[in-house]
Write a protein that binds this DNA or RNA. Structure first.
Length: 568
DNA sequence: GCCGTTTTCGGCCCGACTGTTTTCAGTCG
């Protein structure tokens, strides 16, 4: 229901944009955004509090509330259907093609009756864009390129794939003569799950020289934009990179502006206006006078709030909290002392227990829990009770031979279809850390899946629910699950929820935030399967920061002795 | 269409780059 309405309102916004209606499009966009970040179904809100309840949602007033009511009652919105009839095209599909916006969508339909990306491609093949469409050859080429880019599946990249590459590129640009300050901004600086492109900011006395270096840098395949202060290129990994050169007085303003996100920035600029200022990427101004811009901190402070970490800049309440100076002190990237999910070559990991322990120590960790798979996961050679006991004895031996790192005995026990576990309680009780997780029967109904998992959480030995929703970024959707019920059960059964730092990134940030609000603790794990994968902890911490987690909310920020006290 | 510690009416985020525009519209971030 919510996601349908989000799509409809976004589409209404674009349709009104096309008709050049003023201001209404922004109102519909805002409403869509509000609904998207809602934790409750609008249907529930309407049922409990009626149309008044809907109007209490920010960005939703009388008009849109009525439309939601209409949708709840009839399953459709007349106004939307009317607009759609005038322009019956796949707007979202077309506008996601770079360079195509609302007006181009209209032109494509009116001149050529093009309704979607496939139709567009066919029209280009027939040469219709230039012959009858009223488009120039250059525009046609640009659209064709964007289509190819989209078809290759290169939209957004998983954070963990792109962060190391971005850091390399920054190092490379640092070597250009004349580069002073350099930072990356955008979704990468916000450490979002996925990153669309690289936004790099530089200060330099020689902007045009820097631009020349940048567009000729090794790895650049194509230059899409080149100007005095901004250039954009496509790199050989099909990643777009944007470079902007700013003056030092404006560096903080630019960093703030290009870090975003968009909604956070809009909210900030609205606050600036109310205070009689103007905020842009060059600074905060009163009239012509610049009153802040050198650092992000001074801009936030002049706007009446404390500086906040990029990870939480989403306009999901952080601005309101910042205005009252009650921002959470987010967990820091160096705060994790131990890793509670680690696989070894006893199952599907690549390296031995000892190698993993030594690698963890090198990474600065004080302890790890070995949590190999169990027998239900036959493809990984999962441990049965007997082999698990043998592994525990082995860990005792290795612990005696190592210093500076403690190895805890653990398991990633498989939750069977009926919610029971595939390792006997008599063995589980002997372990330090029991993580339980789902690896099969992803297609159960929400009710059955939720019941199944809660049953496992009720086991007195299950300390942590590993990767609770089963999703993998860009690869696999989460299974259907009543997250609210899971969080409630976690509280009741004293089960820790995991924030998995591998490409699962599971729990998601919004669920972490809800868990913490419900005073459920989390564990940030790497789920490392080889010695180089402890670096995944960084992404797990980012995830937790986006979920507003503080150090105290995360059990493995404690020493292993203190951490164990928080388990069942 | 929404909203209010200047307002229940009159505002609504801001600027760079591109194209074919000779003064601005479209798109993007």
């Amino acid at each position: 229901m919510n996601s349908d309405l989000v799509k409809i309102f976004q589409e209404i916004a674009t349709l009104l944009d096309i008709k050049k209606v003023a201001f209404k499009p922004r109102a519909y966009e805002k409403a869509a955004f509000s609904i998207e970040s809602l934790s409750e179904e609008v249907g529930e809100i309407y049922k409990n509090k009626g149309i008044k309840g809907l109007e209490d949602i920010s960005g939703i007033g009388g008009g849109i509330a009525e439309k939601i009511e209409e949708y709840i009652k009839t399953g459709k919105i007349k106004e939307y259907q009317k607009l759609k009839k005038e322009l019956p095209v796949d707007i979202a599909g077309l506008t996601q093609i770079e360079g195509i916006g609302p007006q181009t969508v209209k032109k494509l339909y009116e001149n050529l009756k093009i309704k979607n990306a496939t139709g567009l491609e066919e029209a280009i093949k027939k040469g219709l864009l230039t012959t009858r469409g009223g488009f120039s050859k250059k525009t046609e080429e640009r659209i064709l390129k964007s289509l190819g880019f989209l078809k290759a599946g290169h939209g957004r990249y998983y954070l963990g794939d792109i962060l190391p590459i971005a850091r390399d590129i920054i190092e490379k640009i640092k070597t250009f003569p004349g580069v002073e300050q350099i930072e990356y901004a955008g979704s990468l600086r916000r450490m979002q799950e996925t990153v669309g492109d690289l936004d790099i900011l530089i200060t330099s006395k020689y902007p045009s020289k820097i631009m020349d270096f940048f567009v000729k840098m090794p790895g650049v395949v194509e230059v899409t934009v080149k100007g005095e202060t901004r250039s954009a290129v496509r790199l050989n990994l099909d990643i777009h990179a944007d470079l902007r050169v700013m003056s030092p007085e404006s560096f903080g303003a630019a960093l703030q502006y290009f870090t975003g996100d968009k909604y956070h920035n809009i909210a900030l600029r609205e606050i600036a206006i109310k205070k009689g200022y103007k905020l842009n990427e060059y600074g905060l101004f009163r009239g012509k006078k610049m009153i802040a811009g050198k650092t992000e901190k001074e801009i936030y402070e002049k706007l009446g709030m404390a500086w906040m970490s990029p990870e939480i800049r989403t306009n999901n309440g952080e601005i309101e909290v910042a205005l009252t100076h009650k921002l959470p002190k987010l967990i820091d990237y160096g705060d994790i002392k131990g890793d509670l999910q680690v696989q070894t070559d006893w199952t599907d990991g690549e390296h031995s227990i000892k190698d993993m322990a030594e690698a963890a120590k090198k990474q600065g960790l004080q302890y790890i829990a070995i949590t190999d798979h169990t027998k239900s996961l036959a493809m990984t050679g999962g441990n049965d009770e007997k082999r698990l006991l043998k592994q525990m004895a082995e860990i005792d031996k290795i612990n005696k031979s190592l210093s500076g790192i403690k190895i805890l005995k653990g398991v990633e026990v498989d939750i069977k279809k009926d919610g029971s576990l595939d390792i006997a309680d008599e063995v589980l009780v002997q372990l330090d850390v029991v993580g339980a997780s789902v690896h099969s029967h992803f297609n159960l109904s929400e009710e059955d899946q939720t019941k199944r998992i809660i049953l496992a959480m009720e086991n007195q030995h299950v300390d942590i629910l590993f990767h609770p929703t089963g999703r993998i970024v860009g690869r696999r959707e989460a299974y259907k699950l009543d997250m609210e019920a899971i969080i409630k059960a976690a509280k009741r059964t004293k089960t820790i929820l995991e924030a998995n730092g591998s490409s699962r990134l599971d729990l998601k940030d919004e669920h972490i935030r809800k868990a913490i609000e419900a005073e459920v603790r989390i564990a940030i794990d790497s789920d490392a399967h080889s010695i180089d994968q402890f670096s995944f902890l960084e992404y797990g911490i980012a995830q937790a920061r986006r979920g507003w987690a503080e150090k105290k909310d995360v059990i493995n920020t404690r020493s292993w002795q203190e951490m164990l006290k928080l388990l069942k």
